[in-house]
C-alpha cells in the first residue's frame, strides 16, 4: 500500500507533471512565473486547494453522484465545489492567518479557473482511485505544479537580463523555455 502511494506521488510530481507533461494550468504558469516570491505564493495556494478539492470531489462522486446515478452532473458539480471551496478557503485564511492572506490574497480567486485543479479532481475519478490515493495524487499534482512554477520563475529571472531578439521578447521566449524545461522533464519517464 505504502509503495503504491509513493509511486503515485512520484508519478504525479515528476513523470506526469501537470504543467510540463499534461499541459494543465498553463495560464497561471505563464502569468505568475515572472517573480520568484509570487510563484511561491501561487504554488502554495494551488497545492492547498488541489488537495481539498481532490478529497471533497471524491466524496461527492462516491457518496452522491454514483449512488443516485447522476454521473452526468460531474462537470457542473465539481466546478461549483471548487469555486465555493476557493471562496471558503479565502474567508478562512483571511480570518485565521492575515499574514498568509496578505501573501496569497490575489492568487486565491484565480485558482477557480486554474484547469489543473479541476483536471486533478477529474483524473482521480477517471483512474478509479480510493480516498487516500486521490489525496496523494492531488498532493503530488500540486507539488508538481509548485515545482514547475518555481523552476520557471528562476529561469525567467535570468532571462530578464538576457539579450532576446525583439520579436521573441516576453511570451514567445517564455514558451520556448517552457518547451525546453518540458523536454528535460521527459527524462524522468522510466523512473517508476
Amino acid at each position: 500500500m505504502t509503495g503504491g502511494l509513493i509511486s503515485i506521488f512520484i508519478v504525479a510530481v515528476f513523470i506526469e507533471n501537470f504543467v510540463l507533461n499534461q499541459i494543465l494550468g498553463i495560464c497561471p504558469f505563464i502569468g505568475v512565473s515572472n517573480k520568484l516570491d509570487s510563484a511561491v505564493g501561487m504554488g502554495f495556494a494551488v497545492t492547498f486547494v488541489m488537495v481539498m478539492a481532490g478529497v471533497v470531489t471524491w466524496g461527492i462522486q462516491t457518496f452522491i453522484l454514483v449512488p443516485l446515478g447522476l454521473e452526468y452532473l460531474q462537470t457542473i458539480s465539481f466546478i461549483l465545489v471548487i469555486a465555493s471551496l476557493v471562496q471558503f478557503v479565502e474567508m478562512v485564511v483571511r480570518k485565521t492567518a492575515p499574514a498568509l492572506y496578505q501573501a496569497l490574497g490575489v492568487f486565491l480567486p484565480l485558482i477557480t479557473t486554474n484547469c489543473a485543479v479541476l483536471g486533478a479532481a477529474l483524473l482521480n475519478i477517471k483512474k478509479g482511485y480510493g480516498l487516500v490515493e486521490a489525496a496523494v495524487n492531488s498532493l503530488g499534482a500540486g507539488i508538481g505544479f509548485f515545482f514547475a512554477l518555481i523552476l520557471m520563475a528562476g529561469i525567467r529571472e535570468r532571462l530578464d537580463t538576457a539579450e532576446v531578439p525583439s520579436a521573441m521578447k516576453g511570451a514567445p521566449i517564455t514558451f520556448v523555455t517552457a518547451g525546453l524545461l518540458a523536454t528535460a522533464f521527459m527524462g524522468f519517464s522510466g523512473l517508476v
Binding site: P172, L180, A182
Partner: peptide, 25 residues
C-alpha cells in the same frame, strides 16, 4: 516524435506568437 509530445506544443506555440509579432512589427 517530440513535436507531438508536450515540449513540441510549447515550442511551436512560442515560435508562432513570435512570427505573428514579427509580421505586425
Amino acid at each position: 516524435l517530440i513535436m507531438i509530445m508536450a515540449p513540441g506544443g510549447f515550442i511551436v506555440f512560442g515560435l508562432l506568437i513570435a512570427l505573428k509579432r514579427h509580421m505586425e512589427a
